[in-house]
């Protein structure tokens, strides 16, 4: 377990005129897989405190965030511990939009093959982005391909 600790910065909501105002969260995570589980648990807990229903965060949010974070650490920042992954969220009416950005060159999500086809099903890798796309209600990327937005709606 890495020595330093993670800290979520929260703004909006508390003390604002409207309790329904969007709440914003921000977390910077070093590109070290030793931080992965702690970062996911910490961020999910803050999302719940900001209004995301616990049943949404318990599984879908945690798995989608875990996948996006590790992709950013491994493929984006090449596990360079000096490079950070920035996780941000906006929570409003129980819905959450999470962005995960790395310092890498980006990639083309259109090039990722479908891992459920017969030829791919037995491969050990290549399911991360597919899992995110299945769990999140909406997934977008920036043009460079080094930032993913995942929307999870409260249904």
């Amino acid at each position: 377990m890495p020595g330093s600790s993670l800290e979520v910065a929260a703004s909006g909501g508390a003390g604002e005129p409207s309790a329904d105002a969007p709440k914003e969260l921000k977390l910077d995570v070093p590109s070290d897989l030793g931080f992965l589980e702690e970062a996911v648990e910490l961020f999910a807990r803050h999302c719940v405190e900001a209004g995301v229903p616990p049943e949404s965060s318990r599984f879908k949010l945690k798995v989608a965030l875990c996948e996006a974070l590790q992709n950013a650490m491994i493929y984006g920042n090449k596990l360079d511990h000096a490079k950070m992954v920035r996780v941000e969220a906006v929570v409003e009416d129980g819905n959450v939009t999470i962005s995960v950005a790395d310092e890498g060159e980006g990639f083309d999500p259109e090039e990722m093959p479908d891992p459920t086809t017969p030829g791919k099903l037995q491969l050990p890798d290549g399911r991360g982005l597919f899992v995110i796309q299945q769990l999140a209600d909406e997934v977008r990327f920036n043009d460079r391909g080094n930032c993913i937005w995942m929307v999870l709606r409260h249904s």
């Binding site: 945690k62 491969l123 890798d125 991360g128």
Partner: peptide, 17 residues
């Protein structure tokens, strides 16, 4: 178990094989 990620799924595929 709480959750499994795609790497965990991939490991299960490898171990089963």
């Amino acid at each position: 178990t709480g959750y499994i990620d795609s790497s965990g799924l991939g490991l299960l595929v490898s171990l089963s094989k």
